[in-house]
Structures are given as structure tokens and as C-alpha cells.
């Protein structure tokens, strides 16, 4: 198994993705954290939908919450990229027909999938480090410009950043499951990004009109990810609701929800893969 993981890591490290993905992670992390900082710290006003009210984050939030929100401001970009990374792990093999050579060198498909899951998790962790570095740089600049504390309460803030790594890894695994289920790379990418950016928000919005299902949206991947980060820990409930974080799941429950998505898709994909003819 160690050898298979080694081979999978080598696969990742020997294409351009090895440096282009961390670079993209770093840049997007920096840009979107900076944008978040710009809005929360430098502009200092967030209009809410209800009657032209305006939230002034610097008045409402303590230093820790503000830093958390800025440094995790790019998380949606981060987990989308992790999703892409996960999808490419499997569907790339079909796209370039490398699956034949892969299966000849590791014919036990269960072991192969396990090795891919492990190596993907490691790869996403590595990419997360680039992503966090970018976020700290981009967000840190805006915090510094706005005279806000750069790194208040290091332990809590580090915990938040580690949870962001966890979110990215879980999204990578969800992407992997998707890639295993849908071997066509283009379709898998389209479905993955489409569901995240379009279907999920629309469905979540629609569900707010159905009283019995209003809570269900909490279990959607994006909302569960926000819950894992637990950004509104130090914020009173009313403000949190105004900012769209209604009644979040406990962080570890949310993490388990994401893990369950990844597991169900991977197991379904494994069942299909184990029987699939490769020609």
C-alpha cells in the first residue's frame, strides 16, 4: 500500500498540476482574502437585505472574529479547487487512458482506490498550505491597512485555519467520489462546479419557502463547510442570522456530513469501478 501511495504521489508530482495548482491556490487565497478584508475592515460597512440596514463589522465583531472571517474569506475558492483536484485524480486516468497502465501495475482495484484517497488527502493538505499562505498574505495586508489586529489569539485562529484544511480535504474527497462515479472528466467538472455554485444555492433558497425542509439546507456541502469553520462563534445570533448563517451545525457534525458525502460517492464509485471493463 505504501508503494501504491508513493506511485500516486509521483503521478501528481510529475505533471504541471504539481506547481500550477498550489500557485492558483496561493493567488486565489490571497485575492479573495484581500477582498474580504477590503469589505470587512477597510470599507467597514455591509448592507443587509432588510430595510437598508448596515452592519459595521468592526463595531460588532471582536478582533478574533474579524481575523477569522478575513483569513477564511477565500474558502469557497479553496474548496472548489480542492474539488477539481479530487475530480482530476480519477477522471484524468480515463481521459488520458492511463488507467490501463495503472491497473496493470496495481490490479487490485480496492487497494488502488484506497491509495488514491490517501495520496489525494496528502496532496490537498500540501495545496492547503499554499492556500493558507496566500490567505494570510492577502488578508493580512488588508487587516494591517485597516489597523486591525493581525493575529489575535493565535491558538483559536490556528484552529480555524486547521479546520479550513479539513474542509479542503473533505471537498477533495467529494471530488474524488464524483470523479470515480463520472469518469468523463468534463462532465464530472461541470457537475461538481455547477452543483456547488448554482444548484446548491438555488435549492437552498427554494427550501426556505418549505417550512418542513427549511433546516435541510444546513446539510448542503457549502453550508456545512461554513459550519465546520464555525466563524460566528463569537457573534450574537441575530447578527449571524443577518449574515446568512442561520442555526449552523456543530462543527464536527458538519465535518461528518461532508465526510459522509465523500464516503457515499466513493463507495458507489468503487462498486462501479470494481466491475467496470477497461478497454
Amino acid at each position: 500500500m505504501t508503494r501504491l501511495v508513493h506511485a500516486e504521489l509521483r503521478k501528481y508530482l510529475t505533471t504541471r498540476l504539481a506547481w500550477s495548482m498550489p500557485l492558483t491556490m496561493f493567488l486565489l487565497g490571497g485575492i479573495f482574502a484581500a477582498v474580504q478584508g477590503l469589505v470587512l475592515v477597510l470599507l467597514g460597512e455591509i448592507p443587509t437585505g432588510a430595510g437598508g440596514e448596515v452592519i459595521r463589522p468592526s463595531e460588532l465583531f471582536d478582533d478574533l472574529t474579524l481575523a477569522r472571517m478575513v483569513y477564511t474569506g477565500a474558502v469557497q475558492m479553496g474548496y472548489l479547487l480542492a474539488l477539481v483536484l479530487g475530480i482530476l485524480t480519477m477522471s484524468g486516468e480515463f481521459r488520458h487512458k492511463t488507467i490501463t497502465a495503472t491497473l496493470l501495475s496495481s490490479p487490485r482495484r480496492g487497494s488502488l482506490i484506497a491509495a488514491k484517497v490517501i495520496s489525494l488527502a496528502l496532496v490537498v493538505v500540501l495545496n492547503s498550505l499554499a492556500f493558507i499562505a496566500g490567505s494570510l498574505l492577502g488578508g493580512g495586508i488588508t487587516l494591517a491597512l485597516g489597523d486591525a489586529a493581525l493575529f489575535p489569539e493565535p491558538v483559536e485562529l490556528t484552529t480555524t485555519l486547521l479546520r479550513m484544511v479539513l474542509v479542503l480535504v473533505l471537498w477533495g474527497l467529494m471530488g474524488f467520489g464524483l470523479g470515480v462515479l463520472i469518469p468523463n472528466q468534463v462532465i464530472a467538472l461541470f457537475v461538481g462546479v455547477g452543483v456547488t455554485l448554482l444548484i446548491e444555492p438555488l435549492l437552498g433558497f427554494g427550501l426556505t419557502f418549505v417550512e418542513q425542509l427549511a433546516d435541510a439546507a444546513r446539510y448542503f456541502p457549502s453550508q456545512a463547510s461554513t459550519s465546520v469553520l464555525d466563524l460566528f462563534a463569537g457573534v450574537d445570533e441575530q447578527t449571524a442570522q443577518q449574515m446568512g448563517a442561520a442555526d449552523p451545525l456543530t462543527w464536527w457534525v458538519a465535518a461528518l456530513v461532508l465526510l459522509a458525502y465523500a464516503a457515499v460517492m466513493t463507495v458507489l464509485g468503487w462498486v462501479v469501478t470494481a466491475r467496470r471493463d477497461v478497454s
Binding site: A7, T14, T15, H96, T100, A101, S105
Partner: peptide
């Protein structure tokens, strides 16, 4: 050892690295 038709190579990976990936599975 098998050399099958339609065995693909990742276009961005060098031939040597393709072999190194396979080699890693068997040490």
C-alpha cells in the same frame, strides 16, 4: 509485462516519469 494498444500516456508527463510512476508500485 504487457504492452497494450491504446495504452495512454499523460501528455504532460515525460516518458521517464511515466515509467517511474509504474516503477514505484513495485519498488
Amino acid at each position: 509485462g504487457a504492452a497494450l494498444e491504446a495504452t495512454g500516456f499523460h501528455p504532460g508527463r515525460s516518458g521517464r516519469d511515466h515509467l517511474r510512476v509504474l516503477a514505484a508500485t513495485h519498488g
